[in-house]
């Protein structure tokens, strides 16, 4: 079943708490995407969000208020980045009995932490410890940035220099300043290390935001969009959890997902690299040559509304096709510590 991204909408993401709830962030995005497609009902709806970001169970329940789920809708939710919700919707469309799907994700990383969105994401850093093996890793209190730094060290020992990381951060921040939806972050300065070898600009910023995508199949996609971004391949893979059981300098799961999704010959790639060195690992794993443009949006280093960040990569990759800026693009999403899980979506005009 030929399936395409036909519309994409996102919030103008903020680097601090703007005082809106998650559902208040999401509602205008849903309104916008309904207006853009002229659709108010969808064959299937799927979302991605995280209870622990809100500090309460069932954060997706109130989000349903933004959708207008009446009469009742066919709907599901993953406690994962909304890119995986998009995958679930894509699979559902392959059944052939429906022709549209709405996908959305939202997150406020400003909320975790004593007193809220404090310097350098310390709330989120500590929160992500809860995602680790509860017997051997979580009790150590090892945080997200520390784990990423272990992986960064492995990348540096493979022949890269710290200046390579800085170059990724500089290019991402510059692109972000040109993207009205991303944050305005300054040129990387001479900030001290967060956890060596990662400096603050190598790490994702605190971000609140939401995003939505509409998928459609066949003729319906052509009706709804002048240049649909057809999904030519989509796949996701996970690898072993323990960083001690992996070669951290590479990503076997990203390589496998890329191979299955057919990640060749793309002009632009939007990579869900939350840390500078992750981009280097992903370029390698996906076999992206030097002439592939990486993250013209600025990527996760310029705006990281967690649980929507991966979906936004697919939305941005589709937008280049919609606007005729590229014929073949790639959107990537990641989850888990040190790029444990990776999703690749290849789009084409």
């Amino acid at each position: 079943m030929n399936t395409a991204v036909v519309a994409f909408a996102q919030t103008e993401h903020t680097g601090e708490d703007s005082g809106l709830t998650e559902v208040e962030l999401l509602a205008p995005v849903i309104t916008a995407i309904k207006e853009r497609t002229g659709l108010s009902r969808f064959g299937f709806t799927c979302s991605g969000s995280l209870d622990y970001l809100a500090g309460a169970p069932f954060s997706f329940v109130s989000a349903l208020d933004a959708v207008g789920a009446w009469p009742p809708i066919s709907e599901s939710h993953v406690e994962m980045d909304a890119a995986w919700a998009l995958y679930e919707a894509w699979v559902r469309l392959q059944h052939g009995d429906i022709d549209t799907a709405l996908v959305y994700g939202f997150g406020k990383t400003s909320q975790p932490g004593r007193g809220g969105g404090v310097r350098h994401n310390t709330g989120l850093r500590a929160l992500m410890t809860l995602q680790l093996d509860p017997y051997y890793l979580a009790p150590l209190g090892v945080d997200q940035v520390s784990l990423a730094a272990l992986q960064a060290r492995a990348v540096l020992e493979g022949g890269h220099k710290e200046d390579d990381l800085r170059a990724v951060a500089a290019r991402s921040r510059e692109a972000g300043r040109g993207n009205p939806y991303a944050l305005d972050l300054p040129e990387p300065g001479d900030e001290d290390y967060e956890v060596v070898p990662l400096r603050p600009y190598d790490c994702p910023p605190v971000t609140d935001g939401a995003a939505a995508i509409v998928l459609a199949t066949g003729d319906r996609a052509r009706e709804l969009c002048e240049t649909p971004a057809w999904i030519r391949g989509i796949d996701h893979r996970i690898e072993a959890h323990s960083p001690g059981a992996r070669d951290l300098s590479r990503s076997e799961s990203a390589a496998l997902a890329g191979e299955k999704a057919g990640a060749r010959g793309v002009e632009i790639a939007e990579l869900h690299a939350q840390f500078s060195h992750e981009e280097l690992i992903l370029r390698d794993a996906l076999g992206l040559s030097d002439d592939v443009r990486i993250n013209p949006s600025g990527g996760a280093l310029a705006a990281n509304p967690m649980m929507a960040t991966g979906l936004i990569r697919i939305g941005e990759a589709a937008s280049y096709v919609h606007r005729g800026q590229a014929r073949r693009t790639l959107g990537h999403a990641s989850s888990g510590p040190c790029l444990q899980q990776n999703l690749v979506c290849v789009l084409e005009a």
Partner: peptide
Amino acid sequence: QTYAWVPRPLPGHPFDRPFAWALIK
């Protein structure tokens, strides 16, 4: 095997002074 230097530990960390995380075989 590999390591990460933490110049400013967080509250949940095992030390309140700089230390390293390491993969140890």
